[in-house]
Design a protein around this nucleic acid. Structure first.
Lengths: 375, 375
DNA sequence: TCGAGCGATTGGAACGTTCCAATTTCAGGC
DNA sequence: GCCTGAAATTGGAACGTTCCAATCGCTCGA
């Protein structure tokens, strides 16, 4: 068996395989062998140059779109390029230019629809700035997430965006020392990274105030459990309740960021008396779990209980669901992340910047006036 | 303004910017300027070698985990690596090795929850085979999709997986000539690429048979419009209806793969008399749109109308939705795609292989017996 | 007719690795 | 003390680009 040896020094982490004396026995399936050239040898800039009868430098100029090349030579080169099926080698280019015009994006969970919009914003802004985006994901596991980041850094991306990272803060800070880094959806406060987050306490406040404006007083909260954003939303809820003079109605039960814990949280709420008339859930999926539990127990939404989610995912927008939710401007946040990176990479900014954007309320069909006039 | 000039030759496509005589005026914002080295110079293998008092070759051996290095030297090198915060440069390595151990995955639409599982399968299998996965997406646009693929190929990924590509068949075939290529969720039949698809006609047949087994005869279909998989599902539906002797009940209305067209399709169905008692929609989102339209018109599901989706996405599984659907083994399909790639890259397979996996039925709460005994 | 000046073109030196063949080191047997 | 061979280590040549300074070839004015 191979041993794994972790070198850890300061803020830097990297794993080195240590083999035992038996050489390539327990290695990868069988693949360290001579890599069979499946495809025929790829043409290089030199092949193009030969074919076009010019120097490699001239080919390079044409490829980069330099204006000083004579039309005839440009034509000849382009022709040779097409004939040979030449495709520039980004590695060679990156090596000499020492920059890649690539940004790496690590998404903690690609299957969460919430990240779709973020990714879309990143993609579009990056394109405007002529950057290429490479995504990677830890598939919900911390160690894979670190591996993904490492790979991207080894590829020498010019900058890194971590969308909702699940890894430890110290690790993140270490990466920030290696490359320009923007953290999305999770606040950082160090000198090495930027962050773009939404104002969770504010969002919670908006949710509570919406309920209050509909006459609700017994407003409960199903929280996000141990998750990162959970605390901020819970505290926002509590503060808002205080501010409205509803502190004696504060009621928080444990939930989570997916359907099942939301369901369980709601079931716990159902055992309390008097029942709350409005429930603010940690996020949309959590709210959906709650919705299900309420419906099963014979309550109707929003007549008996009003329900709010958070994140305004595509699921909340489905008309069959039509969940009132707190919206984060995800697309814009994605764009902002790229802008922060751009400032560091191309404008030379070095002082950290931490942006907080405001959430907003999207009223749909799961919230309504308090039944029977409250209390 | 910059002009864009497309070189197209045979199966190869690549865009070359052509500048007008004014040099760097209307260029990118301002970024072609000297790239400011935001971070301090990165240590190279030579720095490590100097610090550890050994040759660069020895450092290279340690990093790659070669067993022949003496323990003392290994220790010294590792120490130097940690002290300097050295991270190997994948570009330099890839350049000389002429392989990268990276596979590129282009997902047509990252916000579609359907691809979450596929990606997960790809990710896990790739990790087992010690490949790194790089994702990219066209964000639903054809030209961006091509750009994404180009970028990955310029990076010299060892292989490429296209998940539900929206680009033309000829273009795909061209890419298959440049690198090992697996197409997911869309059949190909050429000699240059492999494909992994689900058996759409079979899935449609299962859906229809499920309805029939519940006593339904007036089974309608809301199709996927002009989309790629739409045709196969529609034809599967029609064939199954024939086989069951229900050809006179065949009823297809135009829909699409998202909620809105599904809604419209359902509305059209509602104008037909007699109403169908079961509806098979092109996919889950389409079915959700239909569900909404039916509910709005006062029908209850499944008492008045049974409803089926396709793809068995996470949305269908939400208990509040609980949509009967046709399941594709997405995770497995992702794994298979990586395996096909591996066979081409490391095993030297060259003959194409086209796998078709079987879909299956997931019964939930939107299908039930035919109301009143049919006809 | 000649050089100045300018645009177009070129060859060589990087970039940071791995690979390979060659060299050094060292233990052990005679 | 020397030779042998294996193990450990090494320097130089790739890999495919871009960058830079230098050169080439014209046109034009004196």
């Amino acid at each position: 068996m191979d041993a794994e040896f972790w070198v850890y020094f300061g803020t830097f982490q990297w794993n080195v395989p240590i083999l035992n004396s038996k050489p390539e026995s327990s290695q990868v399936p069988s693949s360290r062998k001579p890599p069979r050239p499946n495809q025929r040898k790829r043409p290089t800039i030199l092949d193009v140059a030969r074919r076009a009868g010019v120097s490699k430098s001239l080919v390079s100029l044409v490829i980069r779109g330099d204006a000083r090349v004579s039309p005839s030579n440009r034509g000849a080169v382009l022709e040779a390029v097409a004939e040979l099926g030449y495709r520039p080698n980004a590695m060679a280019r990156g090596l000499v230019q020492r920059r890649t015009r690539m940004v790496g994006v690590v998404v903690s969970d690609l299957s969460n629809p919430f990240f779709g919009d973020v990714v879309s914003g990143i993609q579009r802004r990056a394109r405007e700035l002529e950057y290429t985006v490479l995504f990677s994901t830890g598939d919900r596991q911390q160690d894979l997430e670190v591996e993904a980041i490492e790979s991207l850094l080894e590829l020498r991306v010019d900058g890194l965006i971590l969308a909702g990272p699940r890894i430890e803060f110290e690790t993140i800070e270490g990466f920030g020392r290696s490359a320009p880094l923007v953290v999305l959806h999770r606040p950082t406060a160090d000198d090495w990274s930027d962050s773009v987050t939404n104002d969770d306490p504010k969002g919670a406040q908006i949710a509570v105030e919406h309920c209050a404006s509909l006459g609700h007083t017994r407003i409960a909260h199903i929280d996000g459990g141990p998750g990162a954003g959970a605390q901020a939303r819970r505290e926002g809820y509590e503060q808002a309740m205080h501010r409205l003079g509803l502190e004696r109605h504060i009621l928080v039960v444990t939930g989570g960021f997916t359907e099942k814990p939301g369901r369980r949280g709601a079931q716990e709420l159902l055992s309390r008396r008097p029942l709350p008339t409005a429930v603010f859930a940690a996020n949309d999926l959590c709210a959906l779990g709650a919705l299900n539990a309420f419906e099963e127990s014979g309550l109707t939404i929003p007549e008996d209980i009003s329900l709010l989610g958070y994140d305004n995912t595509s699921v909340a927008a489905l008309r069959h669901v039509s969940l009132t939710s707190i919206h984060q401007p995800s697309v814009r946040m994605g764009r902002m992340a790229v802008d922060r990176l751009f400032e560091r990479i191309d404008k030379g900014r070095t002082e950290p910047r931490h942006d907080v954007v405001s959430p907003s309320l999207v009223v749909r069909d799961t919230t309504g006036p308090v039944p029977g006039g409250g209390e």
